[in-house]
C-alpha cells in the first residue's frame, strides 16, 4: 500500500509498540516507518498517545513491548552514552516550546551547542547561533528572554534550538497548537523549509488538518492506540471509515 521505491533502511521503524500508564493502555501495537527525507504526520485526538509515541522515539519514555528502531538502533536498549549520541541526531520541538526561562535566546541556542561540540571558538558559536536564528527569521530577538516573545516566536526559537545541532530527524509535538491561523501557516512553511534546508526526516504530531495537509508526505491516523490508516492525505481521508470521517468533519467545521 505505502510501498515506495526506497532501497535505504527507514530512519524510524516502529513495530508492534505498546505502552501503558497504570491501567491506561495508550499505545496498542503501533507500526510506523519513516523513510529518509520524509515528513510523516501523526494525526489523532488528544489523549490518544501521539506525544507518548515521539517521547519513546526520543528515549524520554520506554515502551512496554515492541521495537522502536531509530537510525538502526533500538532506543530502549541504548546506554547513556549511546542515547546521548543518538539524541544529537534528533531534534525535538516541544508543544510549549520549553525554552529555558532564565536564559536569553542566544543562551538558549548556545546551551546544547557548547555542551555537545568541543573546541568551538566564540566566533564560531556566534556564527552558528546567528545562522539558525536567521533560518527561522528571528535574528532580531537574539538578546531577548523567552517571556518577551510571542507564542509563534517561541515556537520558532524552539525549532531553532533543535536545529543548532543539525539533526537528521525532527520530532514536532503539536507545532501549531495555540497559534493564530496566520502564524500556523508560517510554522507550516518553516517545517517545510527545515526539511529542504537541513534534509531532515520528521514526525509531526498534530490534530490540525491544515498543518497535516501542508507538511505531511504521509499521514498516519492514530485512533484508540493504533494506526487506523496510513497514506497520503487524500488516501487517508478518502474513506468511509466513520471515525476518520468524523475527525475530518470536526476539523473542517472548526
Amino acid at each position: 500500500m505505502e510501498e515506495v521505491n526506497q532501497p535505504e533502511a527507514p530512519v524510524i521503524n516502529i513495530q508492534d509498540l505498546h505502552k501503558s500508564f497504570g491501567s491506561l493502555h495508550v499505545l496498542r501495537g503501533v507500526d510506523l516507518r519513516v523513510e529518509k527525507g520524509e515528513n510523516v504526520v501523526v494525526l489523532g485526538r488528544s489523549g490518544t498517545g501521539k506525544s507518548v509515541l515521539i517521547k519513546i522515539i526520543a528515549g524520554l519514555l520506554k515502551q512496554d513491548r515492541g521495537d522502536c528502531l531509530v537510525l538502526g538502533q533500538e532506543v530502549s536498549t541504548l546506554n547513556q552514552k549511546e542515547l546521548r549520541d543518538l539524541r544529537m541526531k534528533i531534534g525535538f520541538s516541544f508543544q510549549n516550546s520549553a525554552l529555558y526561562d532564565s536564559m536569553t535566546v542566544r543562551e538558549n541556542l548556545e546551551f546544547p551547542l557548547v555542551r555537545n561540540v568541543a573546541n568551538l571558538t566564540r566566533a564560531e558559536i556566534n556564527e552558528q547561533v546567528e545562522t539558525v536564528l536567521d533560518a527561522v527569521g528571528l535574528l532580531q530577538t537574539i538578546n531577548q528572554v523567552p517571556s518577551e516573545l510571542s507564542g509563534g516566536q517561541r515556537k520558532r526559537i524552539g525549532i531553532a534550538r533543535t536545529l543548532i545541532l543539525q539533526p537528521e530527524i525532527m520530532l514536532y509535538d503539536e507545532p501549531t497548537a495555540g497559534l493564530d491561523p496566520i502564524t500556523c501557516l508560517e510554522i507550516n512553511e518553516l517545517i517545510n523549509e527545515v526539511k529542504e534546508k537541513y534534509h531532515t526526516s520528521s514526525i509531526i504530531i498534530t490534530h490540525d488538518l491544515t498543518c497535516a495537509r501542508a507538511t505531511g508526505d504521509k499521514i498516519a491516523m492514530l485512533l484508540d492506540g493504533q494506526f487506523l490508516k496510513q497514506g497520503t492525505f487524500e488516501e487517508v481521508f478518502n474513506t468511509e471509515e466513520e471515525r476518520i470521517k468524523s475527525f475530518y468533519d470536526y476539523n473542517f467545521i472548526q
Binding site: K55, R87, N96, A98, L99, D101, F111, P112, R161, L165
Partner: peptide
C-alpha cells in the same frame, strides 16, 4: 518544579545535555 512541568528538563535531555 516549574522546569519539570514545562518540559524544560525534558528539553535538556533531548538536547543530549545531562
Amino acid at each position: 518544579g516549574s522546569m519539570r512541568v514545562t518540559e524544560q528538563i525534558d528539553a535538556m535531555e533531548v538536547s543530549a545535555v545531562n
